[in-house]
Design a binder for these strands. Structure first.
Lengths: 123, 123
DNA sequence: GCGCACCATCGATGGCTATCGATGTGTCGG
DNA sequence: CCGACACATCGATAGCCATCGATGGTGCGC
């Protein structure tokens, strides 16, 4: 557990590079950001979100089963993941469950990708 | 932005919603996009990329082991993942391996997030 | 009410992932 | 030439994830 001070020691080639200020990103921030990416880390979910963005409306599970080639439980599983991540909003209308994009969260994911300096907004 | 007429769903309860044109996104595109997100779907990798973006330089593995609290093989494992995804570039300099951001790919990830219509090189 | 359609949940399973210790490869300094 | 260092790879393991069939709940039409 050397604190790795990397100050001005001998340093002909003693230190390999810049210190990289340890944790620029807080632990919880990193976990939260990774959770967003994790929700999109699946081809089917990517297609669901993309389709929802191009269709600019709502979809129900029944309209996704065939195009995705997945079983209905699996589609429900993916929708739940996306809702939990905040990317989708669920709205029960009659016997159908309509899902629509949460534009604010999608924008937030895009903002995270700026990376230079976290704007750190509070949604 | 294509307004996309969005049919008026006059049907009482026959069809639940719009057809959602099957695969707006090609299969390989969806897989490729998901791969990028998958590379960022880990808190440690998020912190590596973020730190690399703020530090605006190169890092070697030895400078990441302590801040991340991971073993050296695990850090190497994560770096490999990021390189395979194209997000990082590896450069061997002496006995150190320097990693730097691949800005083009990071931008591409951000572009994918526009989602409305894939601006991609393929129209 | 009865059945049917839509959907979520559950339980099981095969596959992938992150993590580590041990080991191998290459480089530098003495 | 030899030890020390930086790093990657390997083998093993525990945990998570996507997928499905079966099941249960709820709203709608008859």
């Amino acid at each position: 557990m050397t604190p790795r001070a990397l100050p001005v020691l001998e340093q002909p080639a003693a230190a390999c590079c810049a210190p990289l200020g340890a944790d620029e990103l807080s632990d919880t921030d990193a976990v939260a950001t990774a959770s967003l990416f994790k929700a999109l880390a699946d081809p089917h979910r990517v297609r669901i979100v993309n389709g929802l963005a191009t269709a600019r409306g709502s979809v129900c599970v029944c309209d996704l089963v065939d195009p995705l080639g997945l079983s209905q439980p699996t589609v429900s599983f993916h929708m739940k993941k996306l809702v939990e991540a905040g990317l989708l909003v669920r709205e029960q209308r009659g016997k159908w469950a309509y899902y629509s994009l949460n534009a604010a969260v999608v924008d937030r994911v895009r903002d995270v990708l700026h990376l230079d300096r976290r704007p750190e907004e509070t949604p």
